[in-house]
Write a protein that binds this DNA or RNA. Structure first.
Ligand SMILES: [Mn+2]
Ligand SMILES: [Mn+2]
Ligand SMILES: [Zn+2]
Ligand SMILES: [Zn+2]
Lengths: 138, 138
DNA sequence: TTTATTTATGCAACATTATTGCATCTGTGA
DNA sequence: TCACAGATGCAATAATGTTGCATAAATAAA
């Protein structure tokens, strides 16, 4: 990932170009799976925890990242491959959590099946599947 | 819910009969939706927080309750209507979270669709749907 | 029923995760 | 280059959950 594209991504989302934002964004672009806050904290030790939290929040606000809830309470964050905006986050893809390596992946090719519930108005749906990922299964 | 049945439920799961356990179990049996820890804490003020946590844990261990993860990080707990045991919790039903009243419901009649992911070994699946519940929708 | 054993409870302390206030620093547009 | 909105770091605080330990209560044994 070259630095030019990082900067453009930040500019396109009307975010100021800072070292922290570049480093965080780069990590997400290079990772092939979602990252937890702990992942970031471990690797980007030269930034304050608070700054990392605020960086995640601004990325989510702008539609660069989406939060992936986890049963264990440790949320992860994934890139919004589809075009999310500050106005609307929409993610109808399945999330996979590997029981072995612990990684969480976005599976954009797998959409969450629509559920019909009589008498209910169904909005968002969130499907988290666990098991063994492609790497750990072979 | 009469007290006899409460006691029998506890006995059947080899748990000692205590006031706290009876009160907590009664609340779950009377509620028509899942309860969060905060729900319990607000209503059962005469018990220590730690005791409520431990009560929830023992109920989960024995297969009386199951934990329902929530995007917001506040887990809820629902009764295991099917026969769960200390050995195996199995819940393949959909969970619904109402955007209006905030209640979370177990929908035992709605099973989580099975997902096939090539190269992956798929195990558990967790589907949380949000929208308006039957009450808030009418 | 009484006693002994096991388990549950309450309190305090601690751990973890996340947020807020505020002074200072930095990026950006003028 | 300058002014200013916005970002950062640090300290304090909040929210949620866990652990250790003394005491109390429930159940088993006598
Ligand atoms: Mn995703
Ligand atoms: Mn349920
Ligand atoms: Zn894996
Ligand atoms: Zn509702």
């Amino acid at each position: 990932m070259e630095i030019k594209s990082l900067i453009n991504t930040l500019k396109d989302h009307s975010l100021r170009i800072t070292d922290c934002r570049k480093d965080v964004l780069e990590k997400f672009l290079n990772a092939n799976h979602a990252l937890s806050f702990k992942n970031l904290e471990e690797d980007l030790v030269n930034y304050d925890r608070v700054t990392l939290y605020r960086t995640l929040h601004s990325f989510i606000d702008k539609g660069i990242l989406h939060r992936i809830p986890d049963d264990s309470g440790f949320a992860s964050y994934g890139i919004c491959h589809d075009t999310c905006t500050p106005q609307s986050h929409s993610h109808d893809h399945v999330h996979f959590k590997c029981d072995d390596c612990g990684n969480i992946e976005c599976l954009p090719s797998h959409h969450v099946p629509k559920i019909e519930i009589p008498g209910y108005l169904v909005g968002e749906a969130n499907l988290i599947v666990s098991g063994l990922c492609n790497s750990c299964n072979h």
